[in-house]
Every structure is written in C-alpha cells, then in structure tokens.
Design a protein around this nucleic acid. Structure first.
Lengths: 141, 141
DNA sequence: ATTATATATTTGTATTATACAAGCATATAG
DNA sequence: CTATATGCTTGTATAATACAAATATATAAT
C-alpha cells in the first residue's frame, strides 16, 4: 500500500504541476501565438538537426497539418529555414537559423531561471537525483 | 556548472514530460470535451469540498467565464451539483455528486495505472523520494 | 512509357478551450 | 431608494488542433 501511496502522490503532484506549467505557457504566449510550440520545435531542430514536417509531427504527436502551420509560422519569423530534400522533391527540410538559435537560447534562459529559482533551496545532490528520476520516467513514458 | 546542468536536465525532462502528458490528455478527451478540465475540477471538489465558480477559476488560473462553462458542462452530466449560497444569492456553490465521485475514482484509477506501470521498475524508496521532490517543487511553484 | 497508386505537404473547414467584454441578478453603501 | 460593487452567465473573437480535400512528387504495374 505504501507503494500505491507513493504513486498516488506522484500522480497528484505531476498533474498539479502540468496544470500550472500549461498556465504559465499560455499566459506568456499572449504575444502572437506559437510560443508554446515553437520552443519545442526549435529545441528539436537544434538538438537533432534538420527535420521534415512528418518527423516533427511524430516527435510531438501532433497532426502533420498542425506542424505544417507551426513550421510555416516559424519560417515566416525567420527562426527556421526550409530547404528541399534533393532526393525527394516532396519533402521540406527545416533547419534552425541563427536567429532561431538566439531565440531558443533566450527562451531557455528564461525557463532555466524559473526552475533555478524554484529549486534554489535544493542541494545539488537533490537536483541531480531529481533530474535522473525524471529522465528515467520519461524514458519509459 | 554542475548545478546548472542539473537544472537544465530538470527543465528539459519536465518540458518533455508536459508535452507528452498534454498529448495523452488530449487524445483521451476525444469523447465529448472537457475530460482534461473535469478531472481537476472533480478532484478539487472532492478534496476541498464545495466551491464557487470564482474559487475554481482561481485554483486553476483560468478565467471565470471558462470555469462557468466547464462547471455548467459537468453539471449537465450530473457529475457536480449546483446549490445556492443561502447567505448570498449571487453565488452558486458546486458540490461533487455520487456519480462524480465514481467518475473521479475511475479516472484516477486509469491515471494511477499508467503511472504505476511507468514506474514499475522503481524501488519504493525511489518512488517516495520522487514524490517528495515533486511536492517540494510544487510548493514553491 | 503511361497510368495507377502511394507519400509528403499544404490548405479548407470544423471543433474546442480559452479570454475579454457585455449583460443580468443580487448585495452593499450612500 | 438609488448608485455602485460583486458573482456569474452569455456573446464574441482568437488560437490550437484534427480531419478531410487538394496538390505535388515518387514509385509500381502493366
């Protein structure tokens, strides 16, 4: 039963956390749209290199049409760049631009600062452990 | 720098987790609408007792009008019940119904099962520690 | 080679969640 | 007893999304 209680607590806290995080995302994204999606797209392209629409859609488990529009919006803002795959004319490959990298960096900084502050009373050990546990959870999610 | 790395990892993993969790929520909520919101509302009413629209809106950091509609929908499904505050005729107090409790229980079961499975290889100690850390994080969030 | 089928993406349309503003009912203050 | 404040609901606009249709290109079958 202790196990159940622990899992219950985890479920409770994660659910609570998600609600708040989504709120923060939404409230900060008042300026224009997309902020929420764009961070993830930029991060993905920065980390794993150029990707096409289908790939991005799969990464985020969103419909291809949705990613098509989001990528189009990011392209319009000059944060990512479209190039065609020489071996397949149907495919658009998206690459993060220098501007996109800057924006990603700035966004990340803001987000990190928030977490930094949230966890300022934690010891390094605790933070490391927490990160490890989160990573393990995501690996099987 | 180690500290920064740990926080970076936490930020990365939590962001990833949120994306996936929101996806799951959305995909399960195809049936009708509201599942996402309703779980939280029911949980809130079950845990803290009757509440009025304004209170619920504050809890979830959503606009009052949004909560008004969500509560209306839950009321329509018989999951919560409206009563007026005898001391103030403007206020509607919402209470979870027996049916609502059953639905909450069922939803919770599904969610717990998912977490249970996700964490099945963890030791009890790890689960407990993880829950504790999550709670601490939420407390300052 | 020519046509049929499959795949990648974009664009059209509908739905849902949400916020903000206006309206309505009820309280409270002057 | 009127004026103002409060609580909620309803009207309207916007954004994110999915699904379906359209378009372009590639691959397979004859």
């Amino acid at each position: 039963m202790n196990n159940k209680n622990a899992v219950e607590r985890i479920e409770y806290e994660l659910t609570t956390f998600i609600r708040r995080a989504v709120y923060i995302d939404n409230s900060e994204n008042k300026i224009g749209n997309l902020e929420r999606a764009s961070y993830l797209i930029l991060r993905q392209l920065d980390e794993f290199g150029p990707a096409r629409v289908k790939k991005l859609a799969e990464s985020f488990k969103l419909d291809i049409s949705t990613l098509s529009r989001q990528a189009g919006a990011l392209e319009g803002k000059g944060l990512i760049e479209r190039s065609s795959d020489p071996s397949d004319g149907r495919v658009s490959l998206f690459t993060i631009t220098e501007l996109g990298r800057e924006k990603l960096k700035a966004d990340k900084k803001t987000r990190l600062a928030r977490y930094q502050k949230m966890l300022e009373t934690w010891t390094n050990e605790e933070k490391e452990l927490f990160g490890e546990l989160l990573e393990r959870m995501n690996d099987v999610f």
